[in-house]
Design a protein around this nucleic acid. Sequence first.
DNA 1: TAGTGGTCTAGACCACAAA
DNA 2: TTGTGGTCTAGACCACTAT
Lengths: 235, 235
Amino acid sequence: MAAKQHELATDLERRIAAGEFSETNKLPTEDQLIEQYGASRYCVRGAIAVLAEAGEVFPVRGSGVFVREDRGGMYMPISTSYGIAADFPDRKVVSTVRELALTRTDEKLAKRMRCDVDAPVWRVVRLRCVDDLPISYETAWYLKEYVPFLNEEIASGSLYRYMREDLGLRFGFTDKVIHVDWLGAEAARQLGLEEGDPAICIEDDAFLSNGKLFNASYNLYHYKNAKFYSMASMR
Amino acid sequence: MAAKQHELATDLERRIAAGEFSETNKLPTEDQLIEQYGASRYCVRGAIAVLAEAGEVFPVRGSGVFVREDRGGMYMPISTSYGIAADFPDRKVVSTVRELALTRTDEKLAKRMRCDVDAPVWRVVRLRCVDDLPISYETAWYLKEYVPFLNEEIASGSLYRYMREDLGLRFGFTDKVIHVDWLGAEAARQLGLEEGDPAICIEDDAFLSNGKLFNASYNLYHYKNAKFYSMASMR
DNA sequence: TAGTGGTCTAGACCACAAA
DNA sequence: TTGTGGTCTAGACCACTAT
């Protein structure tokens, strides 16, 4: 069951999208929202914080909570928390599995994944497209300890949805390292680019809510089709 | 005056760095921290949230707040909120001003900066080095409306510190777009790379706490010397 | 001066982990 | 079962904006 603040956030999002506040570009005051939703100030402020982190509103002390103008364009959040599918709910997201094998960690991977050498892992290589545009070529490893079963059908859909809803895993946080890399022959072929072309590379370590790493990945993004954004408060 | 939660966060950071919790890798419980600091649970949880966002700890419900292992290496937060200087407090950060001029916005810049065409802006081009390694080549514009005065001495130091402490500006949030770009001749020369080399490019729009944009910039990062990290909770 | 968001307190109950 | 963090309420005062 979703927390109350998230319900409020979702409803406020809907109201913003419906243009309910487009005249003033301002949300109702906190006191008004408390009234409207029959919630405490804690909840109302929690909901506003969710929207603020998503870059949809910004609160100004003494003045109100303002709706931000829409930035157009197809950008991916640099913290693509729940996978591409969740980032583009309105677009056609297709994952094509290029490799899927149950293998074992070598020394280097074991170190990265904080597990024993020779630990069983699923290795999954996928090409990911949004609206038929190739976006990324991803190599991911999932510890079999946490993901006992996997097949191509599952990997073609949303792996994160599967792990959360079917396996009952609870996610905690991710670490990402972002740098520039060059495409190898195979990655270039898959993405429709040239070998040696540059790519934004995001190395991602994903942890469960108990702090255990369950998934590491190496993601090469198409330099034309994939742009990222990031919002940060400066407090 | 800093808020109480931030004081607690700073002190906890100090205690973590001092190794006070290195045996268990766990912070004291919330109740214990309430006791130790004579603060409310709100404050204690606020402090923990600050550390969690910085990736220093992660809370596990029912279990405790765990200290995260140090990730080594020199990475820059993708949300380099207060400028490079604040990100590397222990390193030698040098900004060399390559250009500094009071000019006016053309149509394209005016659109980006949400201001009138021909609005006065400072244009500042800087090469930024950390420990004598070239990190980035940055072109930035500051609206004169908010930054009435600027000179090379100020721009050689921390512009953000100047704006905050001397001009009394209060920062709100930033929007960043991250993509790959190629170095032009001048940028390559400054960074000690070859023309045509790839670079991570971050376009940054910075807003005051009242939601007004005051600074836009275009930052090219050295593909070898600059790596970024980003942490995200997956809730 | 009035209105609004920011911080803080005190206390309650819930969800989950570990014993 | 016990202890921990997560959510929620009610109420207070402060900092800032706008008038």
